[in-house]
Design a protein around this nucleic acid. Structure first.
Length: 315
DNA sequence: AAAACTATCAACCGCCCGCTG
DNA sequence: TCAGCGGGCGGTTGATAGTTT
């Protein structure tokens, strides 16, 4: 039987054996994949042990899929973290089922993996919460027994019908998604100076800002999202995250003393090429805008956000 | 212990798009 | 301009492992 996609007579299907994986891995490691359609033949020829056979009995598409979803060295193994799950939900709200686009924002994860996770896990969770997994809006009341809690009412102004507000995205992501940059929420807090306990922002998103347990900037999945930084400056909590794998920033808070460190990654230098430490006086009177130039924030991501920046100014 | 059910995930299919001759 | 091809993508399937009855 001729395989439809490549017209090969003898094409093996089904699960890959360790031997097949080995052939493919060695070939691509040594020569790159070139054109995928030629990989099956060349992968066999590149191994002494396989001189007697005709190479991989697989079609090029199958080789490509196996490499991308399983053999690639930069893949992250293991379960999705809570941060990754939230990031997927947030990005899916904007992108929908564009799994490959979503995967670009989750380093080490494949579109297939994210798609499976969505279909087997996240989808059900959203439905249980009374949310339509396609639109992220509330399902009709006849459908579920969900309940609205907390500050959900304040969120409805930006995303009518959803218990989650539209999350905030930077300019670069906005360009990529071809959507306008969403104005940051009003985060003028009633700061309790006496107790030194920073209030929660009036607008909470699906992203749990207060889970800052992650410490590895390179691993944080919500790279494109500006909110954690903004929120950390408002609440006085710590925040580390990574942007596009090239720009990492952190905000450390110690009382009202804040530091923001910027690392600009250099893909040719495998890391930061420079960093700056910026002391920041947070709390009432803190003006985020004055730090924008100093921080040399990437992509001019705040340049069109004058209103939100104003909203970040206390006092 | 075994059958039934559920969850997970690797892999395939078919469609679409961009490139090339 | 257009047909052929390769690659990429989203939807779907089917195998397997785990759990429940």
């Amino acid at each position: 039987m001729v395989h439809r996609c490549c017209n090969k007579q003898k094409v093996k299907r089904g699960l890959w054996s360790p031997e097949e994986d080995d052939k493919l891995l060695r070939h691509i490691t040594a020569h790159g994949h070139g054109t995928w359609s030629s990989v099956p033949k060349l992968a066999g020829q590149s191994l002494l042990l396989s001189l007697l056979n005709a190479g991989l009995q697989r079609c090029g598409k199958s080789c490509r899929l196996r490499w991308i979803n399983y053999l690639r060295p930069d893949l992250k193994r293991g379960s999705f973290t809570a941060q990754e799950e939230r990031a997927i939900i947030d990005i899916h709200r904007i992108l929908g089922n564009r799994w490959s686009q979503i995967a670009k924002h989750l380093p080490g994860r494949t579109d297939n993996e994210i798609k499976n996770f969505w279909n087997s896990c996240i989808k059900k969770k959203l439905i249980e919460q009374g949310l339509d997994p396609n639109t992220h809006n509330l399902l009709h009341s006849s459908h579920g027994h969900h309940k609205l809690t907390g500050n959900s009412s304040s969120s409805s102004k930006s995303n009518s019908g959803s218990i989650f507000p539209v999350f905030q995205i930077d300019n670069a992501l906005a360009r990529e998604l071809k959507v306008p940059v969403v104005a940051l929420p009003s985060v003028v807090p009633s700061y309790d100076h006496a107790s030194s306990v920073a209030p929660l922002p009036p607008m909470q998103t699906a992203y749990d800002y207060h889970d800052h347990s992650f410490t590895d900037m390179e691993q944080h999945p919500s790279a494109p999202i500006l909110n954690p930084l903004v929120n950390s400056l408002v609440t006085g909590e710590s925040c580390n995250w990574n942007m596009e794998g090239e720009v990492s920033m952190s905000a450390k808070h110690d009382g009202n003393d804040h530091q923001l460190k910027q690392h600009v990654g250099d893909p040719n230098n495998n890391g930061a090429v420079h960093s700056i430490d910026v002391p920041m006086e947070g709390g009432p009177g803190f003006d985020f805008a004055q730090y924008v130039d100093l921080l040399q924030l990437p992509w001019g991501m705040l340049s069109n956000l004058s209103d939100p920046i104003d909203q970040l100014t206390w006092g």
